[in-house]
Amino acid sequence: MAKGRIVVNELYCKGCELCTSVCPKDLIQIAVDRFTPKGYHPAELVDPEGACTGCAICSIICPDAAITVYRWVPADKVKIKV
């Protein structure tokens, strides 16, 4: 299984929860303990077991382009290196 991770840019995230509803592994939650600079509770990846596959579905539904997606891939298939 591919391994990945997401980074939610809290400048853009408005806590709309759409990403939380589409994650196939149910790994995205709303961080109710803090606010973004615009005053929303942001989405965050909660993935202690490293289950995120970097499938990018959350980034497809995100209305604010707030989600950056990374995935571990074979070195010869890398499009953009981190």
Binding site: S59, V69, W72, V73, A75, K79, V82
Partner: peptide, 17 residues
């Protein structure tokens, strides 16, 4: 081929925004 796994950027905010 190089099968060694490296972390790759899959998606980020497009340059058009």
């Amino acid at each position: 081929t190089n099968k060694e796994l490296v972390e790759s950027l899959i998606y980020t905010k497009p340059e058009g925004l």
